[in-house]
Design a protein around this nucleic acid. Structure first.
Length: 262
DNA sequence: AACAGAACCAACCGCAGACAC
DNA sequence: AGTGTCTGCGGTTGGTTCTGT
């Protein structure tokens, strides 16, 4: 036999929390802790809430030292770098940002940061166009079969795909005439991107990746805390040292799936 | 001033893995 | 060992606020 059901959904209150409910939850947890069981907690306090809802409320808003809003440029950069590195693992990203919750970061990313990043790409694209610079065209159909990548380089693939998504965005928003959007990028697309951009996050071309060894990603990683101190010389993919082993242990297929939303 | 659409964000939903029985 | 619940996570929804016309 398993455990008792979570809660009777017909008899639980839903929607925004009142200050009274917040007070009850906060003072109970302050005095007794969660007791390791969120499901039974609302009953003990006399709250008509689902245990899941209590947990969410506590973790995202009531627990001490939570920061809301007012994300700094440094935090923006860190979130972008981590997203590029590990995808939408919000709990891991939140763990790198003291006082921030995964929900907060997720909302912030979805509503602002994603656009900000794409906006940067777009501006850069326009700048290149204005200067008369040309980028190597992306020939999706004719791309040769990808040679095997070193494991760590393969781990960077989500970033390349994100770049491809950003470029697809640029193409579809800057063209004078309607050009059909490019087809979805192949797993290891034939991309070419500047590595000297003024963007906070720089990239490697696929070709460059071929010449990188695992050491370039592991031993020679740029520690994530250094990102904030850098200017325009971030010509690499930055992986937090304490996350690189975790990240590189993940199956590639799963990681690629992380950016399917783009 | 009124309305529409966009942006924001708190909360809910559903899934997968962990775990109790 | 098997069953079914619990927990934690990421994705999504829907209400509220903001902004532009």
């Amino acid at each position: 036999m398993g455990r008792a059901p979570c809660c009777d959904k017909a008899n639980v209150k839903r929607g925004p929390w009142s200050p009274e409910e917040d007070d009850k939850l906060k003072s109970y947890i302050h005095n007794h802790g969660t007791g390791g069981n969120w499901i039974s907690l609302p009953q003990k306090i006399g709250l008509k809430r689902c245990g899941k809802s209590c947990r969410l409320r506590w973790l995202n808003y009531l627990r001490p030292n939570i920061k809301h809003g007012g994300f700094t440029e440094d935090e923006d950069d860190l979130i972008c770098s981590l997203y590029i590195t590990i995808g939408s693992r919000w709990s891991i990203i939140a763990a790198q940002l003291p006082g921030r919750t995964d929900n907060d970061i997720k909302n912030y990313w979805n509503t602002r940061l994603k656009k900000k990043l794409l906006g940067r790409q777009r501006r850069q694209h326009l700048l290149h166009a204005r200067r008369g610079e040309t980028k190597q065209s992306i020939n999706w159909a004719a791309a040769p079969p990808p040679p095997p990548l070193p494991q760590a380089a393969a781990a960077a693939t989500p970033f390349l795909m994100m770049q491809a998504a950003a470029d697809a965005y640029n193409y579809s928003n800057t063209a004078a005439v309607d050009i059909p959007p490019p087809p979805p990028p192949p797993p290891y697309g034939n991309f070419c991107y500047s590595t000297s951009s003024s963007d906070d996050v720089s990239s490697f071309s696929h070709e460059n990746l071929q010449h990188l060894s695992e050491g370039d990603f592991h031993g020679g990683l740029t520690p994530i805390n250094n990102i904030n101190n850098n200017n325009n010389n971030n010509d690499g993919i930055m992986i937090p040292e304490n996350l690189s082993s975790y990240y590189n242990s993940m199956p590639r297929q799963q990681l690629d799936g992380d950016i399917s939303c783009l």
